[in-house]
Amino acid sequence: MTNDGPFGPVVNGTQIVFYEYRPNQPAAITFIALFGLATLAHLVCTFILRAWFFIPFVLGGICETFGYVGRAWSHKDPARPGPFILQNVLLLAGPPFLAATVYMSLGRVTTALNAQHLSKISTRWMTKIYVIIDIACIFSQFIGALMPVNGDEESIRKGHTIIIVGLVVQLGALSFFILTSWYIYWGIMRDPTNLSMNKLLGNWRKCFRAIEIVTVIMIVRGVVRAAEFLQGEGGYVISHEAFIYAFDAALMFMIMVVFAIVHPGRLVRANIRSMNLAQDTMLQNLQ
């Protein structure tokens, strides 16, 4: 079994380069296990906390898990289209699903702290705008990842362009998003709301830090993936498998770990308990 690349089928007289190397099977299997366990943990938390806004996050975990199934599958036959398409589409589509929940988390946390007035735009519209951008990015990743399969050079070039545009738009949205998060956080620090001083919601600072940490991680991942597609076939990033694991797999798994430790759904549930407690106290006083 040779380890020399590149690998890929010849279609219409043109070799489509799937991999510049033979995919590492043990590394892929390791991340199948890691993402599988992390996704299961988040699925359980979603039901326990009734944090339905984490459903896209779970879907992102599923994409990451089966994306690395595709890479493990590609180890034996790197020129086979099916496994390559599976990993290419899912590993590009997974992060936008994760990002959708990050966007929604800021809106939920801000509302739970009654700090909507600190956002430059309505938190409801803010969430909708970011999620719409994210959906557009997901579709661009799907389309861009599928276009090169027919072997046409023009389709390959257009596919890469669409992916790059999607990544750049996502990077722009994430950059503006983290500025919005910082603005709301420091606004609460300067002028605390009553709910931000409630002991039941005492971990709200950790939630903001978690949101900002995962956003920075996504920005780093997006920059590396954009560089990969800008360099194109034979580029340094795409030719070294270490980049996909160091700046994609490891970073996306880190995001799932951070949100498992500091789950925004816990703050939202604490807010609901706080309101219920306040209502019970009011009823007792009236009696």
Rank of each mutant, 00 (worst) to 15 (best):
L90N: 01
L92H: 07
A93F: 03
L98G: 00
T101D: 06
V102E: 04
V102R: 01
M104S: 09
M104V: 09
S105T: 08
R108H: 12
R108A: 03
T110H: 02
T110A: 02
T111L: 12
N114T: 07
N114V: 07
Q116M: 08
L118P: 01
S119H: 13
K120L: 13
K120I: 11
K120G: 14
T123M: 11
M126T: 08
M126K: 10
T127D: 04
Y130L: 12
V131Y: 11
I135N: 00
C137M: 14
F139N: 14
F139I: 15
F142T: 08
F142W: 12
F142H: 10
F142L: 15
I143N: 02
L146R: 11
M147N: 04
M147E: 04
P148C: 06
P148H: 07
V149Q: 10
V149L: 08
N150E: 14
N150F: 11
G151L: 08
E153T: 15
S155L: 11
S155F: 11
S155T: 12
I156V: 12
R157P: 02
R157N: 09
G159C: 01
H160M: 12
H160N: 15
I164S: 03
I164F: 14
I164Y: 06
V165S: 04
V165C: 05
L167R: 00
L167H: 01
L167F: 06
V168P: 00
V169W: 05
G172S: 08
G172P: 05
G172M: 09
A173E: 03
A173V: 06
L174M: 15
S175Y: 06
S175R: 04
F176P: 07
F177G: 00
L179Y: 10
T180P: 00
T180M: 11
T180H: 05
T180N: 05
S181E: 08
S181F: 03
W182F: 13
Y183G: 11
I184Y: 02
M189G: 07
D191Y: 11
P192V: 10
N194D: 15
L195C: 08
S196T: 07
M197Q: 13
M197S: 10
N198D: 15
K199V: 13
W204L: 05
W204C: 00
K206G: 09
A210R: 01
A210Q: 06
A210K: 00
A210Y: 04
A210H: 04
E212L: 13
E212S: 13
I213R: 02
I213W: 07
I213P: 01
T215V: 13
T215L: 10
